[in-house]
Amino acid sequence: MSIQHFRVALIPFFAAFCLPVFAHPETLVKVKDAEDQLGARVGYIELDLNSGKILESFRPEERFPMMSTFKVLLCGAVLSRVDAGQEQLGRRIHYSQNDLVEYSPVTEKHLTDGMTVRELCSAAITMSDNTAANLLLTTIGGPKELTAFLHNMGDHVTRLDRWEPELNEAIPNDERDTTMPAAMATTLRKLLTGELLTLASRQQLIDWMEADKVAGPLLRSALPAGWFIADKSGAGERGSRGIIAALGPDGKPSRIVVIYTTGSQATMDERNRQIAEIGASLIKHW
């Protein structure tokens, strides 16, 4: 067993022997301040990774656009098919120029040779490549099948209805392509620590998230040296922004954090800054 596999296998073990965790309302004060600064709703939840206990939450059962955070769930569904012998990570998928959609920095470079399922998941999570996500959605049967996968996990809230990039439209009061912070946090925890996926697939999923290259201005910008984070960000229309993450000190994750916002007129930089400040408060009061 590799060191990384050992780390993920012992996530519940280490967490069980940690000192009790206590909620700190100071972080919620910052979440509410972010709402004021952005002029928009902000949803927040913080779960203990081992027990699933909610440590703090704000608007945990209000719907927010998922945006690209759905790509972690998508690759979880792909990995479940791999575990069941219905898919192979090494299978190569070929596609054409007509398949390319807006923001496809990886797939646009491989029109000639195609990409493997493993490479597509890596591109979808680490670079948020939209064509990679659409190609992977095709392998599982489309958005409705991802929703069905989530329902089978016990998540009857999260739903995907459309493809990239239309799913980022974020129309107010439109339930399409949305989740709730509580539902997303619980589902992410199941994917990373539950028995739904094999140990190898859980490790692969967290490795992809740990290698995320496009979430630097968010929670990662607030992390002290030595902290662990595996995350996936999302951005959408109407001032929408979000991030889902597993993080913790001492090089291992111990909490799940989900943050979503929508309806702001603020710039992307300002949305990023507010999420980073929430992260800084979380870490300060850990």
Score class of each variant (00 low, 15 high):
S2E: 05
Q4V: 08
H5M: 15
H5A: 09
F6W: 08
V8A: 13
A9K: 12
A9S: 15
L10Y: 09
I11P: 05
P12Y: 13
F14N: 02
A15M: 15
A16H: 15
F22T: 06
H24A: 15
H24Y: 09
P25V: 12
T27W: 02
V29C: 13
K30L: 11
K32L: 12
K32M: 15
D33E: 13
A34I: 10
D36N: 13
L38N: 06
L38Y: 09
G39I: 09
A40C: 08
V42E: 00
G43Y: 00
E46D: 07
D48H: 07
D48Y: 04
D48R: 04
S51I: 04
G52Q: 06
G52Y: 05
G52L: 05
L55Q: 08
E56Q: 11
E56M: 08
R59V: 01
P60Y: 08
M66N: 02
T69Q: 01
L74G: 02
G76H: 02
L79C: 04
V82E: 05
D83T: 05
D83S: 06
A84P: 03
L89V: 06
G90S: 12
H94P: 09
V101W: 06
P105Q: 06
V106E: 14
H110A: 09
D113K: 12
G114D: 04
E119I: 01
N134I: 04
T138N: 15
T139V: 15
G142R: 03
L150A: 08
L150T: 08
M153G: 08
M153D: 04
M153Q: 09
G154P: 04
R159G: 04
L160C: 11
R162C: 07
P165Q: 06
E166Y: 15
L167H: 03
D174G: 05
D177M: 01
T178N: 03
T178K: 02
T179A: 03
P181W: 00
A182L: 15
A182S: 12
A183N: 09
A183V: 13
A185N: 00
K190D: 15
L192G: 03
T193W: 10
L196Y: 15
T198E: 11
T198M: 10
A200Y: 13
R202V: 08
Q203C: 02
D207L: 12
K213Y: 09
P217V: 11
R220S: 04
L223N: 03
W227L: 01
F228M: 10
F228C: 07
D231Y: 04
E237V: 10
G239S: 04
R241G: 05
I244W: 00
I244Q: 01
P253S: 09
P253Y: 10
S254Q: 15
R255N: 02
V257C: 07
G263Q: 06
Q265I: 12
Q265E: 15
A266T: 13
T267L: 10
T267A: 13
D269W: 10
D269S: 13
I275E: 01
A280I: 14
S281T: 13
I283E: 04
